[in-house]
Nucleic acid binder design. Structure first.
Ligand SMILES: [Mn+2]
Ligand SMILES: [Mn+2]
Ligand SMILES: [Zn+2]
Ligand SMILES: [Zn+2]
Lengths: 139, 139
DNA sequence: TTTATAAATGCAACAATGTTGCATTAAAAT
DNA sequence: ATTTTAATGCAACATTGTTGCATTTATAAA
């Protein structure tokens, strides 16, 4: 949950103009615990042109502010990046959990670091997507 | 690399009719080390209707014979399943490596088992996608 | 506060991806 | 050879994503 002013500041710090759709998108993403599917973002920002929304998503992903949180299903989910991401360098030390019951997608920091090494390969990025049932849905 | 006859057998064992497009798809996937992007599959099987190809991919995924190997980029990659997959139960003990140089996507078994546990969550499936530079491209 | 300018927006048009219904065809069981 | 059930091809449609271009707007400079 971020104020409109802090969102604008956040954008300008990253050399991105603080336009209404960008503020609207970040506001939407910040007021939610879990990642948001494209269709829902679209619905929430339907006063803006569809093309502009795509360009906004791409601009904020390029800017290191937003990331895709799940792409394996039929819908793409988006979430806010943490502080340590920057332009063209997303550094996520978390996994994405998708609940098969409530369909929520969450970014989660986990204890055991995921260290993968393959002989003679150079590892740049590891992304882990976990499916299962979340704590709320497990009762 | 599988013979046409063994592919047909393989399909029938899983209660799937051995139709030309299915044999063609499995033949294509089996003659390649790495996973194949949709566009290339489409190109190779362009004598068949596009709709039929989608239905074929879905039928073989449902049947536990084929799986998506990468969905995070702009293209979906497909690969053959190993033996231990079955109808509605894909059990992959491997990761997907995408080379940022040659763009090949490969299924790879790795030493360290990826064991993830989250308190109060029920884990059903873990998929790991790794990006980097493959051994060939590292020289 | 006004002006300048570079970037973002909206719109139209397009391309690619994916789905559904239905009549026809073909695989495999009898 | 006949039957039956499933798969195919085709048309039509829906969703997702992209590009070019004229217009507008956020911000920096005057
Ligand atoms: Mn995340
Ligand atoms: Mn695989
Ligand atoms: Zn849940
Ligand atoms: Zn490579």
């Amino acid at each position: 949950m971020m104020s409109e002013e802090s969102i604008k500041e956040y954008l300008r710090e990253r050399a991105l103009k603080a336009t209404p759709i960008r503020v609207g998108l970040l506001s939407l993403l910040s007021e939610r615990e879990s990642a948001i599917p494209y269709s829902e973002i679209q619905e929430n920002l339907k006063s803006f042109d569809r093309v502009t929304l795509y360009r906004t998503l791409n601009a904020l992903i390029d800017g290191g502010i937003v990331h895709k949180a799940s792409t394996s299903g039929d819908e793409t989910y988006y979430a806010l990046c943490s502080q340590n991401c920057s332009k063209h360098c997303h550094k996520h030390e978390h996994i994405h959990f998708k609940c098969t019951a409530c369909h929520e997608v969450s970014c989660m920091h986990i204890e055991q670091a995921i260290k993968i090494s393959i002989p003679n390969f150079q590892i740049e990025e590891v992304s882990v997507e976990v499916k299962g049932v979340c704590d709320k849905c497990c009762k």
